[in-house]
Design a protein around this nucleic acid. Structure first.
Length: 512
RNA sequence: GGUCCGUUCGUCUAGGGGUUAGGACGUAUCCCUUUCACGGAUAAAACACGGGUUCGAUUCCCGUACGGACUACCA
């Protein structure tokens, strides 16, 4: 009987949650649901200097938008709380002290200047990797080199200190990553990382291991940037004597820039014109707004689907998956190993697919809202017709109104290019005839009748309909392109169409 | 520089000792359409390189190249 799967997403509130972070959260969530386990959220706010107000709310709102809900979180505490590391501050010191007592960690009193000097000295001596390790610590000010009495005095006097892990000199550290397989590192390449900072806060390494242990985390699914420090984490589990319950690791491939090299950054989005954040982020200091997928018009289910396929796939050819289907299909084994370049075109395609699958009733709401913003009142029924007419032509919900606006607003201008090419005497003849026929029309006016009426107008003038079609469109919509014209006429009704044609007839100068 | 991770069409990927190396996005062409789009069809487009193992390697192994991450009292 295996124990319940428990995973966590552990963001730092240092700014807006990056899309890569959202994907990490999603994979954790999918895995938890798939395994019938629990997904927790823990805020890793141990760096007081980098704390950004509002970042936590941002995380909450972003995940809420996507429907990625945590069983336990700061906002929905369970029995493993608190869920903010700053609120767990008191507990970490004892664990660090236990490590000191067991000889796996030690106090260090070096100032940042002294550390800097050490690095410079080593660099000058052509040491390839200047770091605080099993060799260099013998020359620094710490509880390993200082007399016990002095250490005691320094501690008692309130002198600032840190607690560093004592990395063994010679040891193979192995871990079996669920995505990458066995990873082996020699301890001699690791350094004596700080566990407790001089401000009394733990570093990520300590807090993370202690909390994951305390919260019963069984699987750590996180970004690949953590892979280099994973051996340290394994060592810490061992030093604490928690090897038996050490979680399994899965290090996710990174999201890369669409072109060029490196990982995806905010700058890339700005430069290429797409968001890298789930929702808008207002930078309180600069007053700038970083664009979010939500505000750009990405549908949450489309975005989720797109995100899930960034580095993972179900192994079958279908690409449209609802959240439920994603949960059902998800497995860590099918996550790729290599970095994924971000492609906004694919995101757009997903959005189009989801948009088209939405009902007209739902889509009509977007049209009504956008119209209202411009002071135009649109009723549900016509908005639904407009949605049906235009949903195959758009990428974002906001495009619906742009594409159908002409249905609701009387136009006052015409595409000049089309007018100069197509507005000729033949067109005027046919349209004059058609306008009259429309004014006199009685009965049910649908696309069929609109078309046959137009056809007979052309015929009675002895003109081929195809030759004047664009002019007809121009006269009613002002544009040379758009959705099916006869459907447009049916929505507008004979009187409105006639009125518009008459306006065009009165306004546009006829070509020679 | 060091450590670790990676490398199949431009991009996301499937596959896996013998395949016409499959799909999707994007691109191009055609069909549909009295427009544009949608939809349908077709096309161009990939196993980084060099060795080994093998009857046979894109697939396994080793190098090389290239890319990436990490290398803080940041996470």
């Amino acid at each position: 009987m295996s124990k319940e799967v428990r995973v966590r997403f552990a963001p730092s509130p240092t700014g807006p949650l990056h899309i890569g972070g959202v994907r990490t959260a999603l994979y954790n969530y999918l895995f938890a649901k798939k395994m019938g386990g629990k997904f927790l959220l823990r805020i890793e706010d141990t760096d007081q200097a980098r704390f950004v107000p509002g970042a936590e709310d941002y995380i909450q709102e972003s995940l809420a938008w996507l429907g990625i809900s945590a069983e336990e979180s700061p906002w929905k505490p369970g029995e493993n709380g608190p869920y903010r590391q700053s609120e767990r501050k008191e507990s970490y010191m004892q664990y660090a002290l236990n490590l000191v007592e067991a000889g796996h960690a030690y106090y260090a009193f070096d100032t940042s200047e002294e550390l800097e000097a050490m690095r410079e000295r080593l660099t000058a001596a052509r040491v390839v990797q200047p770091q605080y390790n099993s060799i260099t610590r013998t020359q620094m000010k710490n509880s390993l080199t200082l007399p016990a009495e002095e250490v005691k005095e320094r501690l008692a006097s309130g002198e600032p200190y840190v607690i560093r892990v004592k990395i063994p000199r010679k040891e193979e550290v192995r871990l079996n990553d669920m995505i990458r397989g066995w990873v082996m590192v020699h301890s001699s390449t690791l350094d004596d990382k700080v566990l407790m900072k001089s401000d009394g806060m733990p570093t990520y390494h300590l807090a993370n291991i202690v909390d994951d242990h305390l919260m019963g985390i069984t699987h750590v699914i996180r970004g690949e940037e953590w892979l280099p420090s994973a051996p340290l984490h394994v060592l810490l589990y061992k030093f604490f004597g928690w090897e038996d319950t050490m979680p399994q690791f899965a290090h996710l491939p990174l999201l890369l820039k669409p072109n060029g090299n490196g990982k995806l950054s905010k700058r890339d989005g700005d430069k290429l014109g797409f968001p890298v954040f789930p929702i808008n982020w207002e930078n309180k200091e600069t007053g700038e707004t970083a664009a979010g997928f939500r505000e750009q018009g990405y549908l949450q289910d489309a975005f989720l689907n797109f995100l899930a396929f960034l580095g993972w796939n179900p192994g079958i050819e279908r690409e449209i998956f609802s959240l439920e289907e994603l949960i059902d299909a998800f497995s860590i084994e099918r996550i790729g190993k290599s970095g994924t370049k971000f492609d906004i075109e694919k995101a757009k395609w997903y959005n189009e697919q989801y948009l088209r699958s939405k009902s007209n009733q739902e889509l009509a709401l977007f049209i009504i809202d956008d119209a209202a913003k411009e002071g135009v009142e649109v009723n549900q029924k016509v908005a639904e017709q407009a949605a049906e007419l235009t949903k195959g032509r758009v990428t974002f919900p906001g495009d619906l109104w742009k594409e159908s606006k002409f249905l609701f607003v009387t136009l006052n201008s015409f595409d000049e290019d089309i007018a100069s090419k197509k507005w000729n005497s033949d067109a005027v003849k046919v349209l004059s005839h058609y306008a009259k026929a429309l004014k006199d029309f009685e009965g049910t006016f649908d696309a069929e009748t609109a078309k046959s009426l137009l056809g007979s107008s052309a015929e009675s003038e002895g003109i081929k309909l195809g030759k004047v079609m664009q002019a007809v469109r121009l006269s009613v919509t002002g544009s040379g392109t758009g959705p099916d014209l006869m459907e447009v006429f049916a929505i507008l009704g004979p009187q409105e169409v006639a009125k518009r044609i008459q306006f065009a007839l009165d306004t546009l100068p006829v070509l020679a």
